[in-house]
Each structure stands twice: as structure tokens, then as C-alpha cells.
Design a protein around this nucleic acid. Sequence first.
DNA 1: ATTACATTTGACAACTCTGTCCAAAATATT
DNA 2: AATATTTTGGACAGAGTTGTCAAATGTAAT
Lengths: 99, 99
Amino acid sequence: MSYQTFGDYIRTRRVAIELPLRKVAAYLDIDTSTLSKVERGERPASPDYLKPLSKILGLDLKEVQTKYIADKITNDFGALEHLREGLKAAEKQIKTKKK
Amino acid sequence: MSYQTFGDYIRTRRVAIELPLRKVAAYLDIDTSTLSKVERGERPASPDYLKPLSKILGLDLKEVQTKYIADKITNDFGALEHLREGLKAAEKQIKTKKK
DNA sequence: ATTACATTTGACAACTCTGTCCAAAATATT
DNA sequence: AATATTTTGGACAGAGTTGTCAAATGTAAT
């Protein structure tokens, strides 16, 4: 019933293709320790990680971003009663071109 | 073509009902200066403000939250290419009941 | 069991964020 | 124009965040 966190998502993939944290972290140009924390949800992922992650893990960037956003929204806005309506409104607002 | 920020939204209403920053800020239990900055978009609104704001401004809480979320998402995720898909996914995830 | 490699942990510095205080500027009232 | 009120600006403190480093722990391989 619970959803897969962003950290689980990338860890699962990393393990599947048998890359050590060390290699992935080096590719992202961050400390191994940082990536470890991100995978375990102890720290949030920086958006800067998304592109390199999708590349080195061989994942679709769209999917990576999608998981990232879904996870972050759940964390950031989970407490608000009217989140669903807010998301709908946000979608409309974005459709209406930005800036 | 551009959308109304959260700050504009509450300022417009506050001015319409002729309340000074001072009064609204006092009701939210924050400094006048802080509210001024929030209204002008110099600082983000804290989610704690939403309920008292809706009360003192006589606005529907759902609308206030909705504007807040839409604004924040635009700011926080505006740089991501696949934001719309991410929002869709987030909605599904939320529908699937939280944790 | 030693050695090598992978991962986690905790302390830490640098930076950012949030709100306050108080002075300055803008606006309204008399 | 003088005074009162509202609004803004900038310096600041305290809290929180981000990532690093180095040591500790876990895991495999020989």
C-alpha cells in the first residue's frame, strides 16, 4: 500500500546493475556518504543529481524526475488537507506557460 | 498570461477589506515586516500562516492552500522539464493513501 | 582470519533560511 | 505643512540544511 521512495527507486536500480555507491557518487561528483544518505532517505536528493543519475543508471530522465517530484511533494506538502486540488491548480498554472 | 502569485493574492484581498499589515501580522503572530515581504514575494509564506490568513481575510481555506501550493510548486520545481508528468504521478501517489 | 572493498555513522564547516528589530521611506489625515 | 500611520529595507541572530571527512561497521573473497 505504501509507495516507493525516490531513494529506494535508485538504490534498487543501482544494485540491479551492480554499481557500487562509490562509482555512482563519483559520477555525480558527490561524496559516497552523501549518496548513501540519499538512497536511505536520510537526506533529500538535490535536483542536480537527476540527470547524471538517469545517465549512469540507464534510466529514463522523465521517470527519474517524476519519481523525484512525487516523492518531494509527498514530503513537502503531505500535511495540507487540500493537496490534491492544489496540484490540479498547479498543473493548470504550468500549462498556462510559465513566467 | 502570467499567473497571480500567492503574495499578490493575499495582498489584493487584504487591501480590498482594508486591513493594515499590522493587524493581519498581529493575528498571524508575526512581524509586520515579515508579512510585507511575504506579500511582495521576497520571502515564501510558511504553511503555518494559511489557516489564520484564511480566517482573518475571510477566504476559503481550500482556495488559500491551493494558491499556496500552486505558487510553491512553480517556484520549487519550475526548472524541471517533466514537471507535469511528475505532478500527475504525485496525484496518483496521494490518492493511493499516504503511508 | 586477513585483507580488500562497500556502506554507514557522526561530527563538523559553510551556507541558506526564517523571522525580528528598528530605522527609513511612503502615504494618509488633520 | 505637520503629524500619524503604514509600509519597506537592511542588518542581524538562531535554526536548519547540505555536503565533506574520517572513522566504524558490514560484507566478500582468498
